[in-house]
Computed example of a mutant assay.
Amino acid sequence: MANTRMNSEPFAHGERNTDCSVLFLNEWMERFPWLSAGFTTRRGGVSREPWNTLNCALHVGDAPEDVAANRIRTASAAGFEFDAWTCAEQVHGSDIGIVTKEHRGAGKMSREDAIAAKDGLITKEPGIMLTAFFADCVPLWFVDPDHRAIGIAHAGWRGSVADVAGKTVEAMRSIFGSDPSRMAAAVGPSIGSCCYEVDDYVIDQVKAAGEISGDVFVPASVPGKYMLNLSKYNAKKIAKAGILANRIEITGYCTSCHTDLFFSHRKEGGKTGRMAAWIAIREEVTSG
């Protein structure tokens, strides 16, 4: 999968002291020192098989105490206390949650107190670590440097068709006054078109969703099957929402091709862990 900006891989291990293996959006963090953004790998945690080792999700059958330990490690790597960890119960939809100070820490230890039924989260509050969980679905990051507003979204094929990407951009525009042409977005590690075979039912939904879908899938070798490029599809949705193509980063990582580094729900038969994506505004550098 080609990077929209045609530059080097945007997600990379940084020179930061951490006891777990995470990838940082290094260029963003260099340009915006008030920002922390990245994605975990499957390495460097405490979970046992089949969630070994850095599983960050509570809904996959892993021991809750191991998940908590992995989340604590991830928060530390991101530069935050665990109390900042804030997440929603994802439902493969396109509803966007506006995160305030009162939401800080939602879902960090329990699914029951997570933000309900949201696949996108946005905030302007410093000290809140927006997080979401993935094992083949597409992670999306958004930043508005003018208003210091951020967003994160979880895009499986259903959420992609429902335009969770565009709805996140629109929510930031309407709530924070963000100008999409001044924003930046990133599309993170997910299952690639090399590995993501789907059937007519899925492709029919993609086709019905609109005019940008024509070049995001190709027929597979099996009749009635197609290879779907969800990363490209979401990048097109982001561009349609007004973010300029040269401000959209796209990873080259496929989670299914790299199960040494990532969890893959499809490649591993559904019994696996989840990576966490995060984005947060640092409290200590909110001025200037």
Rank of each mutant, 00 (worst) to 15 (best):
V22N: 03
T86R: 00
V99W: 07
M227W: 05
K101W: 07
V222D: 07
P139V: 10
S36Q: 07
L35I: 05
V60P: 01
H258P: 05
I152E: 06
I191E: 13
E197I: 13
R5K: 15
T100G: 05
M172F: 04
S264T: 11
A245D: 02
A37Q: 04
R173H: 12
E65D: 06
T53G: 07
F82P: 07
K271W: 00
V143P: 10
D113T: 09
L58H: 11
R247V: 06
P64A: 12
K124I: 13
H13T: 10
S178C: 12
W28K: 05
H13A: 12
D163H: 10
F32W: 08
G214W: 13
A276Y: 03
G38V: 05
R282A: 01
A69R: 09
A280P: 02
N26I: 11
T168Q: 14
D136Y: 10
V99R: 05
S8C: 00
E284F: 11
S110F: 04
G273K: 11
K236Y: 04
W51L: 01
R71P: 07
V143H: 12
V202H: 08
G14Y: 02
D136E: 09
K101P: 01
G273I: 02
A135H: 12
T74I: 15
A245P: 09
T53P: 03
K207V: 14
W51G: 00
F24L: 05
F133M: 15
P126K: 07
F32K: 01
R42T: 07
S193E: 13
T131N: 14
A106L: 02
T286I: 08
R31K: 14
S76M: 11
C194D: 15
G288F: 13
H92Q: 12
T251H: 03
L35G: 01
T259C: 09
W85M: 01
P10T: 01
K108A: 14
E81P: 02
S213F: 00
M1I: 06
C137I: 04
I98A: 12
K108H: 08
R104A: 07
R158M: 03
I150K: 02
V91I: 06
E125M: 05
A84Q: 12
D119F: 10
Y253T: 07
R182F: 00
A106P: 02
D113W: 06
D199I: 13
G273R: 09
G273C: 03
E283P: 06
G177E: 13
A235P: 05
E9G: 06
G224Y: 00
K118A: 11
N3A: 12
R247Q: 10
I96H: 14
L54P: 05
W28P: 00
G38Y: 05
I203R: 03
F80L: 14
S221G: 03
C20F: 08
G156P: 11
N246W: 02
G188P: 08
T255R: 12
E89M: 10
S76Q: 14
N26F: 00
V91T: 09
G188M: 02
T74V: 15
R266D: 13
F176I: 04
E9N: 08
